[in-house]
Design a protein around this nucleic acid. Structure first.
Length: 135
DNA sequence: GCCAACGTTGGC
DNA sequence: GCCAACGTTGGC
């Protein structure tokens, strides 16, 4: 089982939108490093959702329900995966909280803020659940 | 609103 | 193959 974090601008697509639709296709990724990460995802992996912009916080949990496949919105060589809504974090955790935590400030999300799809270690994932009192 | 960081493009 | 110019993203 692998853990990932997906960044989204909530005015474009938010975790609440995922809650309403239950499932979504994570399309529009146009960065090679992000694409490579998408392609390493397996069915059953966990993907946390981070809101950039005004929110700047991790808000919820989703599950990867497909392997990567061709992005249907383009003929170029880009990939997508499908996700299903799982649940929100019991309380969200802000970027400033990530930066002040010894374990979480090592997250790629924190170090490389422009990368929209990045891996998370199981230690980082467990720390997030712990700090947000999510179980 | 500004700027740093990063990625892409195109001229040489 | 290098690098300047430019565009985009996202935090502050």
């Amino acid at each position: 089982m692998n853990y990932w974090i997906l960044k989204t601008e909530p005015s474009t697509f938010s975790f609440e939108d995922l809650k309403k639709s239950k499932k979504t296709t994570w399309d529009g990724v146009r960065n090679y490093q992000a694409r490579n990460n998408l392609r390493q995802m397996k069915k059953g992996d966990i993907a946390l959702i981070y809101h950039s912009g005004d929110d700047k916080k991790i808000v919820g949990i989703s599950e990867v329900i497909t392997e990567a496949y061709q992005d249907p919105t383009t003929k170029e060589d880009w990939s997508v995966v499908d996700l299903r809504y799982v649940k929100p974090l019991s309380k969200s955790i802000e970027l400033s909280d990530l930066k002040s935590d010894k374990i979480l400030r090592e997250m790629i999300l924190v170090r490389q803020s422009r990368l929209s799809v990045s891996p998370l270690t199981s230690q980082q994932y467990n720390q997030i659940l712990k700090l947000t009192e999510t179980r």
